[in-house]
Design a protein around this nucleic acid. Structure first.
Lengths: 336, 336
DNA sequence: ACCTTCTTTGCTAACGTTGCAAACGCTATG
DNA sequence: CATAGCGTTTGCAACGTTAGCAAAGAAGGT
């Protein structure tokens, strides 16, 4: 049974208040007092009970990171940086997975006894804007949206410029002489922001180059997984006039697409060039290495943590949109 | 400002105790009472405060998962399964990263105000056995060790049979006609259990086949990363008589090694066969696809959660060792 | 020597919940 | 009709901490 503040106070012959002052680093406490208390703390191996402290202060020091699946490389890289950034601010991070399930997502945000455990939430949502607006009005929880949504002025928001990122990728394919450029990743449901934005960037790049938009070259993908990428690429190759380049909305889609292209007996980049988005490490070691649009997860994580901690300390802060930088990274899969 | 139990009680004209009974699903509460209370709860949008509940009950419903780096595919797959398994038991999971740092690891286990936040810890340690023994004696925290350690009878422990797993991998290479079989992953520091065990399996398989053990074919790797695999393989290829197969202690090492082999102008598996351990999804889509020893992360996660939750409910349970199954998966990188 | 100011300490009351044990009201039984 | 018995409800007291208030003590200035 662990020692409490009271135990320490009794043993050290001082008031609980004094012990508390020592523990929480209050400035005005005499040297001899502090020394005496610290000795007893050490003696009894006292550790402050964080639950009691949280009840009293209203802070838990916990943040929630909500992602669809933690084992998707982009999200695990993001989680790594979020956990590290949070640690620098004295916070720890709980990871929740929604598994691409809207109900689960809603449950995690509004859910009964869960909410008040956290000081804030970092949320990488699938839900549509309308749903989001509706769902989180009741809770006053500081929340930062990551990477997925249009800024509506109601939430803090950290994301890249998806339209430009997609545009840059496709423009690069065009610059290297490709003309039949497919896209993998358009979402079946139209309300998702990211795929819509990337589709917009894809189409604008084609239009600028005077290339007609061929709807048969745009393949949907539900989960941005390797399997979805494989399937979509296989379908593209089976079509009459096959593409000479594919813009994949994520690196993971691209990894699947590349494998499908090889299985079809074609070469990358000779027959088909491939470019993805995310810059996961896997793409640096694959054969061929994967050209991509690099997202700065460390930057995103730091900004998100900075926003959420600021809002925890000052709830009435006006929401802000932070646009994270992106950069085209050319590797073997689009070399010419 | 959120409604409390007292607010609900006053509004519904019942005692706090009754509200509590309704909320926590106590059996003996009349239908009309329950209905009245539930209505008020809905009206005030009351949510139980989990911190207060935790202080009272001594349970937080939180588990800690401690891993070196969450963005290593094996650990993120494990985390995925751990989070899901924990959810099935009503627990949520905090993820902590040690960053391969012993001090950080120790800090997380014994650390000041952190410990009592969790009901239990799942720990994938780097630390040596001796360190572990010493460090966690003070805390009474239910703890399950994952995958890395010899069973010493003091902790619950879930892991594969590392010696046999390594043996199976190397025996497969031998069966496909390889004779100069290198190993990547032996740890510079000798106290780590996993690399030692895998080295033992590697050597026993060679011995059984009557193949001499050549120390120049065993390359260390500090972090089991792609970069380490690349570096080690490059060194192996630069040696006078190059290996015709490489057993990598992790799939990630293997991904790096494969890239190094291609960069040296060699073919897989024709010139060099490659096999890893873990069975990460990346290896199913790589070119060539990667032979490996598959670890059942879902099984490991379920067992670990079952053990830790059992110990939370019954602290004096005798520690148990659970051996998770492994299976050789032959893919293109060792095809003959 | 006395008054003011600055430190330092102690007492006490929350924070929001649940466990304990007693009290209540009702029905079934002797 | 009294009483045992059961199911239902309630008051009180923690769980371990921090914070407000106020008083005691020390230090400095006139």
């Amino acid at each position: 049974m662990p020692a409490t503040l009271r135990d320490v106070a009794e043993r050290a012959q001082v008031s609980m208040r004094t012990v508390s002052n020592v523990v929480s680093g209050y400035t005005h406490v005499s040297e001899k007092m502090r020394k005496r208390v610290l000795e007893v703390i050490d003696e009894l191996d006292y550790r402050p009970n964080p639950v009691a402290r949280s009840l009293r202060t209203g802070r838990t020091g916990l943040l929630a990171l909500v992602v669809p699946e933690i084992d998707v490389p982009y999200f695990s890289a993001l989680a790594r940086d979020v956990i590290n950034a949070a640690a620098a601010f004295g916070y720890r991070v709980m990871v929740d997975q929604t598994g691409h399930d809207h109900d689960q997502e809603r449950e995690l945000l509004t859910g009964a006894d869960r909410t008040m455990l956290f000081d804030g939430i970092l949320f990488s949502p699938l839900v549509t804007k309308a749903e989001l607006l509706e769902m989180s009005s009741p809770t006053r929880m500081p929340i930062v949206l990551l990477g997925e949504h249009e800024f509506d002025g109601r939430y803090d928001h950290v994301a890249i410029d998806n339209v430009r990122a997609a545009h840059d990728a496709v423009a690069h394919l065009i610059a290297s002489g490709r003309t039949r450029i497919a896209a993998i990743g358009a979402q079946p449901l139209e309300e998702y922001a990211t795929p819509q934005q990337r589709t917009a960037g894809y189409e604008s790049a084609l239009s600028e180059a005077g290339i007609d938009i061929d709807p048969r070259l745009a393949k949907p993908a539900a989960h941005y997984s390797r399997a979805d990428g494989y399937r979509a690429a296989a379908e593209l190759l089976a079509q009459s006039r096959r593409p000479d380049a594919i813009f994949c909305f994520s690196d993971l889609l691209a990894m699947g697409a590349m494998r499908a292209i090889f299985d079809a007996g074609l070469s990358i980049p000779e027959d088909v060039a491939i470019i993805g988005v995310d810059d996961i490490e896997e793409g640096r070691y694959s054969r061929p290495s994967l050209s991509t649009v690099s997202l700065d997860t460390a930057f995103i994580a730091e900004q998100a943590i900075a926003r959420v901690t600021a809002r925890i300390d000052e709830p009435e802060l006006p929401p802000r949109e932070v646009v994270a930088p992106h950069a085209l990274v050319v590797r073997e899969s689009t070399a010419h």
